[in-house]
Structure formats: C-alpha cells, structure tokens
Simulated assay, not measured.
Amino acid sequence: MVSWAITGATRGIGLGFVKNLSMDPNNQVFALIRSLGTAGPLEELAAQRKNIYIIVTDISNPTKLDEAAAKVSKVTAGSLDVLILNAGSAGPDTAVLPPSTFHGKKEALDLEIGENIKNNLLSNIYTMNSFLHLIRSGAEKKMIFISSQSGNLEFTRITGFSTLLGYSVSKAGMNMAVTKFATELAPEGIKTLALSPGWVNTDAAKAVTGDPEIRKVMLDMFHKVDPKVDGPAPIEEAVANMLRVIRNLTEADSGKFLTHHGDEEQWF
C-alpha cells in the first residue's frame, strides 16, 4: 500500500486529492484538517471509503503535529510515503493592496507579511519536520508543497501582478525552504517539490474572480503569459495533473518549483 498525508483536506484542492487517491483501495489516505466543523463532505466520503483516515491537528503547533504523525504511524507501522502540504491562506484583507500603499501603515504591513509567513511558510516547515521520520521509513520518500505561480518571480514580472504581497512572498519563501530540504535530504533518497496547481476553480478562486470585472482584469494579466487561458480548471483536472507530476518525481527534479504540467513555463 502507498500512504499519503494531505493537509488542508476539508475542501478545494486538498479534498480533491483525498477523493482521487482514495478511489484506489491500495492507497492509505490521511486527511489532516483543522476542525471537523467544516468537514462534512470529507466525513461523508470517509464513511464510504475505509482507506480514509481523518486526523484533526493544528499545523501551526509542532506539538499537535507530532501527535498527528504518531496517529499516522500507528496505522502505517511507522512510515509515510508522500506528504502533500496543501494547507495555506491568502492572509488578511490587505492582500488587495500593492506594496507601495503600505507606506505609513506599519501595523498593516507587519500583519500582511507576518500572517502569511506564519500560515504558508512556518506551518509547512513545522509539518515537514514532524513527519520527516515517517517519510524516512517510507518507500516513496516524497514531500510536496502546493505552491502558486504568484510565488514565481518571472510570472509576477510579466503579468504585472502587484497585489497579494504577503501571500506571494510566503509562497516564494517556502519554495526556497523546499529546495533547502531537498539539498539536505538528498543523501537519504528523500525528494521534495514545490508544485503550482495552476488556476483552479476553488471557492477561494471564485471569491477573487467571481466578479466579471475582476475576472477580466485577471485574464488580461494572465494572457501575457498564456494567450489561450480562458478560466480556471476544474479541481479534478488540476489534481490529476499534479498527481502525475508527483508520481513521476525523480531525484533530478527534487527541490525544483514546477507547474502542474511538470515544467517551469506552463502555468495554466
């Protein structure tokens, strides 16, 4: 059996991973979530598929993460094949502001950067460290960070995407952390990857691009990178593409930041 742990598994891409992977009875799927309060669809799925294990934890708390890893270990006899770091946040309302507008707004800037660093960088490093001993004993030995094209310098430069300051900085920072883990752990055969899902039709994406005017602005920017993009991809399609990249990950690509197509150019 192949064991998978996915953070942020109550909805969106995280739930998409759980749905896809749990269709194969040879997979053990551990859904790491913050609360059962919003986990209705996940619980319904777990009631139908006995290879899904729901674990409530707090990825900002290393002690809670160690406890979650211990729960996984009891099921897998001390191993984990693939860890998918999907949980994250776009941060506070100030995400809509470009960087220059924070002049004279120190508290707002501290919050914009600090909240994103805590949610998208530190929490993911905590998670990787808590589950690393299980990955060391796994067969696949893979740790995957679900990043964003917003954390890519060239994408940002070409599109002119000046907002989402803290989110983009934290994603870019975590991309570097993934590379640091890759260089450290390569002698053990452990592979890491930062992976962009593309533009995906999640609730979070709908909240940003649901307004027709905002959607047009986004498309105008995205067309500078890919003139053919016409909207977000279904979650199922994005997850299938990412799993293809994850399964094909080799030591040669460990530590890279790749798109859901497995390259460094096709962001959509």
Rank of each mutant, 00 (worst) to 15 (best):
L45G: 11
S196R: 07
E236Y: 15
E154D: 14
I190P: 00
D220T: 03
L111N: 09
L193S: 03
T159Y: 06
G91H: 06
M143T: 12
N129V: 02
A182M: 05
N86P: 05
L97Q: 06
D58E: 11
H103K: 15
I158W: 02
E265R: 15
G160Q: 03
D110I: 08
D58N: 14
A9F: 05
D81C: 04
T127C: 14
S162L: 08
Y53L: 12
V239W: 08
T156S: 15
I54R: 11
K105S: 14
V229M: 14
T57E: 05
S3K: 08
T10I: 15
A172N: 02
V2D: 05
I135E: 03
F17C: 03
L45W: 15
A194W: 01
N86V: 03
G12T: 00
P212E: 11
S79R: 03
S89E: 01
D24Q: 04
K118N: 07
N129I: 02
F257E: 14
S79H: 11
K71A: 13
K171D: 11
F155T: 04
I214D: 09
F161Y: 12
M221Y: 09
M23V: 12
A77S: 15
L36T: 09
S22V: 01
K74P: 15
I84S: 14
V96W: 03
V82I: 08
S123T: 06
E43K: 12
A69N: 02
S168R: 06
D220S: 07
E43S: 06
M174Q: 07
R136C: 01
G210D: 01
E264Y: 07
S60P: 02
D263N: 15
F131C: 06
E44T: 13
S168Q: 01
G78V: 09
N201Y: 04
M128V: 05
E154S: 13
A172K: 05
L36C: 08
L249F: 09
W267Q: 11
F145A: 03
V225C: 14
E237G: 14
W4Y: 15
W199T: 10
G12E: 01
P227Y: 07
D203Q: 13
A95H: 10
D253Q: 15
R215L: 09
H261A: 10
A68R: 10
T192K: 01
